[in-house]
Design a protein around this nucleic acid. Structure first.
Lengths: 143, 143
DNA sequence: CTCCAATAGTCTAAAATGGATACTAGGTTT
DNA sequence: AAACCTAGTATCCATTTTAGACTATTGGAG
C-alpha cells in the first residue's frame, strides 16, 4: 500500500483505511497477527513515542533520556530502547570508557517515523480541548 | 500549535516536534501530564485503533465489533468503547428492543482522527518489511 | 585509604493492568 | 420448560509495569 491519502480529505482517508484493512483480512483470513498492529502496538506502549521525540532532537545517553523522561523506570527505559533497537529505529553505540557511556540515536528509519508522528501529535494537540470538553460532558451525564 | 508540517520534509517534522515539545516543557516545567501523551496513550492501548478502523467503515453493533475483532474480550471491548465515547470519538445509541441493540458510530471528531491514522498505518505498512529485517538481524547478532 | 558519586544497567517483589470465564436481565425459539 | 439471543458485569488469575535495591568500575573528597 502506498500513500494515497495526500489530498487529506477524510473520505479518502476512510476509504484508504477501510480498503487496506479489508484487503488484508481477505488475504489472511482474519488472522489476529496483523503487521500494522505489530508496529502500532509498539507505538502505543506509553514510552516509545516519548523516547522517539526525545531522540529526535539529538542523540542522548541513557541517563540523559532518563532525565528527559523522568517518570519512566530504568527497567522500562532499557526495555523500550531494546525494542526500538531491535526494530531498527534506534542505534546503540557503546563507548568503552569508565564509567561506561552509551549513546542512543535515531536511525534513518526512526527519523522517517517523525513525519506521521508529527501529524498525530498535531491532531492530538489541536483536538485536546475538544476531547477534554467531551470528557467533562460525559462525566457530568453519567457520573 | 497548527500543522506546519505540510511539505512533509523530515527536517520540518523534526523541528516541529522538537519545538512543540520544548515549548510545552517550558510552559509546564517538565510536568509528566502532557496533553499529547494523554491522547496518544489511548491510541496505543492495543484495541482503540482497531475499533476505530472497524467503525470507520460503518456503524456497528456491539457483537458485530466483537466478530470483526475476534480476539478482544467483551470486557475490554466495553471498556475501550466507553473510553472512546467519553473522549467524544464514538457515539453510543441504544435501541430499546428486545434483545437489546446498541449501535456505535464515529463522531465527527472520531472521523477526523482517520487522517493522521492513515498516515501512521501507511508508514507501518510501508516499513514493516524493513522492521522485520531489522529484528531478524538483531536476533541473529545477540541471540 | 576509605567513602561517595556517577555510569548503565539488572533483579526482585509489589502494584496495576488485562484476560478468561461465568453470570445478569428479559424475551424468543424449540 | 429449557436453551439462546442481546449487551454487558463480576470475579479471579496471569501478565505487565513499577519502585527500589543491587552490580562493577573508577575518579575525587576527606
Amino acid at each position: 500500500m502506498t500513500r494515497l491519502c495526500t489530498d487529506n480529505s477524510i473520505e479518502m482517508c476512510r476509504d484508504e483505511i477501510v480498503a487496506g484493512y479489508r484487503q488484508w483480512r481477505e488475504r489472511t483470513g482474519n488472522n489476529p497477527h496483523c503487521p500494522v498492529r505489530d508496529v502500532l502496538d509498539r507505538m502505543g506502549d506509553k514510552w516509545t513515542t516519548l523516547i522517539v521525540i526525545t531522540l529526535a532532537e539529538r542523540p542522548h545517553r541513557f541517563s540523559e533520556i532518563h532525565r528527559a523522561v523522568p517518570d519512566i523506570s530504568r527497567r522500562m527505559l532499557t526495555q523500550t530502547l531494546r525494542h526500538l533497537e531491535r526494530d531498527g529505529m534506534v542505534l546503540r553505540q557503546v563507548f568503552p570508557t569508565m564509567p561506561p557511556s552509551v549513546e542512543y540515536r535515531l536511525t534513518h528509519l526512526g527519523e522517517s517515523l517523525l513525519r506521521p508522528l508529527a501529524e498525530l501529535i498535531a491532531w492530538a494537540d489541536g483536538n485536546h480541548e475538544r476531547i477534554m470538553a467531551a470528557r467533562v460532558a460525559y462525566d457530568a451525564g453519567s457520573g
